[in-house]
């Protein structure tokens, strides 16, 4: 039903939209650009948009000085681990809520959602105590568990909304065809749910990657992921703009790319299926 839009109007909206888009994107663009400058050029007045000496040195320095790879590895393990664990626990739960709903299903879902609203700072001390007691402080496994717990409601909800779109008759057909519960999940449900599960994984990796309360408060040296790595730049010495930029670029690049793939799922996941 596209209507012919006058070219002049289209040029106007295009220009405006691009201006706004570039303005919003500017801090990221500027960070990436600065990461390729020398420290002196990074604080040049006027700012250099071009004509600077392209260098990769900052990346090397950042890696050397603060062992970027170790933080990156922690981030990968923690974000990946918590998502995987969450999926393993959430798939059966979401499956049963979507296909064997009972009167309490809705209440359980809403209650799960309510645990997501618990302000982290309210339970910071008890969690630290428990972590000290269990020897989980500054361990990756500890963070995996915590991040899994805070994201579990979102995972369950997202999977639930995806599973509900799979018609129940297909699962009944599988049952009639001789599939047991195991085969039903393995051969029928999972393949049909793969796209939904993939989006859920994507969104949760992003959320876990960027989580910056528990990762800052429950880690010191060993298990610190990239959020903590960057926070260590908040009290710098000497010239550090280019290095900060390089470190920032490295911290956000992987997730920026993942994020662009998950725009649609983002809406569904973060509104608990209320907006699709």
């Amino acid at each position: 039903m596209a209507r012919a839009v006058s070219t002049r109007r289209k040029i106007a909206t295009t220009t405006l939209a691009w201006l706004v888009g570039l303005l919003i994107f500017f801090p990221i663009f500027w960070t990436i650009l600065t990461s390729f400058k020398t420290e002196a050029q990074a604080i040049n007045n006027p700012p250099l948009f071009w004509g600077f000496e392209f260098t990769l040195e900052n990346y090397a320095v950042v890696q050397e000085r603060s062992d970027y790879m170790r933080f990156l590895w922690n981030s990968v393990i923690i974000a990946g681990g918590s998502t995987l664990l969450g999926i393993l626990i959430a798939v059966p739960a979401a499956w049963s809520m979507a296909f064997v709903p009972s009167k309490r299903t809705k209440d359980i879902l809403l209650w799960m959602l309510s645990t997501k609203m618990l302000p982290a700072v309210g339970v910071l001390y008890p969690i630290s105590l428990i972590f000290v007691e269990l020897g989980l402080l500054d361990t990756r496994i500890g963070l995996i568990v915590i991040l899994m717990l805070i994201n579990l409601p979102i995972i369950v909800w997202m999977l639930y909304t995806y599973f509900r779109e799979i018609p129940g008759e297909i699962l009944e057909a599988a049952r009639m065809d001789g599939a047991g519960l195991k085969e039903e999940i393995l051969f029928v449900l999972t393949p049909m749910a793969i796209p939904g599960i993939a989006s859920t994984i994507l969104l949760n990796v992003i959320l876990a990657w960027n989580e910056a309360f528990w990762t800052l408060n429950l880690t010191a040296a060993n298990a610190a992921p990239l959020t903590a790595f960057i926070a260590s730049y908040s009290s710098p010495e000497g010239l550090f703009y280019a290095k900060l930029s390089a470190a920032s670029t490295m911290a956000i690049a992987p997730i920026l790319i993942l994020g662009w793939f998950s725009q649609k799922q983002l809406v569904r996941g973060l509104t608990f299926g209320a907006v699709k």
Partner: peptide, 21 residues
């Protein structure tokens, strides 16, 4: 007896074909 063990086959209104196969 669970449905799979009854030796019956069913054709559903929506056909209920497995879309990924």
């Amino acid at each position: 007896v669970p449905p799979a063990k009854r030796g019956l086959a069913m054709v559903f209104q929506s056909y209920a074909l497995y879309p990924h196969m």
